[in-house]
Design a protein around this nucleic acid. Structure first.
Lengths: 140, 140
DNA sequence: CTACGAATTCAAGTCAGCTTGAGGTCAAAC
DNA sequence: GTTTGACCTCAAGCTGACTTGAATTCGTAG
């Protein structure tokens, strides 16, 4: 079982050493051993880092990510919460698709102001709808 | 044309006055007038705020949002950039759906560690794949 | 016309997520 | 055995997105 030096983890993941140490401090990853002072990571750390990157992109805080995927292997959250978050994510994914459509649209729409454009308005309504009082977050 | 007091905007949008003033300072919104010192907003500010909320959820900075949807009505970015961002967003939306599946899965999967679970691994691969060297961001 | 309360400005503070720098340690190459 | 260079720790600094608080300004109700 090959162990990775912090620099190797950085090379393969793109995550700088300072961030890796920070993640460790926050309980998201851990080195399997030390050689002298130096951290030695197992290969699976790369997957955990993918997971962290994914979670961050989805807007989760490091703390939330740790609760869901942190070392321990098992989430520190009740099943129902996990399913709720999943539902939220799907909602968010649809909003993102709508936003993508809006960007494509404004790129080519001739209107002087995107808010004047019916198509744009409609996309915005769709994107903002259905999220009325959905869990995480709040009102807008 | 009815003008809105800052408190009304807050009431309808959920965005606190301090944040509204901050957005104005950053050029994302603007009041149509002042009554004395008090800002008077047009109703369309609510749509702009929806747009901001959407953009934030998608991980854009306020500056990026201003470039895309800021006052001026027209994006301050070349068409190609907008389409590129749209493509990125769709990618991200798919990643979010994958993450949702992962959450649903870990909620019920009996494995002691999610990384031991083949299904989970597969979902992670799918989510992390295809984004190898896609524009915005970098390596992981 | 005074008083109230909602809004204003401006400076400073907060939090997350890192980065940077100084000073120290240690494995491996020479 | 010493030097080198990668890594370490710890404290301080930075950016983005706001919030908070003090001191002030006004429109409106009485």
């Amino acid at each position: 079982m090959k162990l990775l030096d912090i620099a190797e983890v950085t090379a393969e993941s793109g995550v700088p050493p300072s961030a890796l140490r920070y993640y460790e401090e926050k309980g998201l990853i851990q080195a399997l051993a030390r050689r002298g002072l130096r951290r030695q990571y197992g290969p699976e750390v790369l997957q955990v880092l993918s997971l962290i990157a994914l979670g961050k992109r989805a807007g989760f805080s490091l703390e939330e990510i740790a609760q869901m995927f942190g070392p321990g292997g098992r989430p520190a959250l009740p099943r129902e919460d996990l399913h709720a978050r999943a539902e939220d994510l799907r909602q968010q994914a649809r909003q993102m698709d709508a936003l993508a459509q809006m960007l494509d649209h404004v790129a080519d729409c001739p209107a002087k102001d995107h808010l004047d454009c019916g198509k744009f308005q409609q996309l915005l309504r769709v994107a903002s709808k259905a999220r009325q009082r959905a869990a995480r977050g709040g009102q807008l």
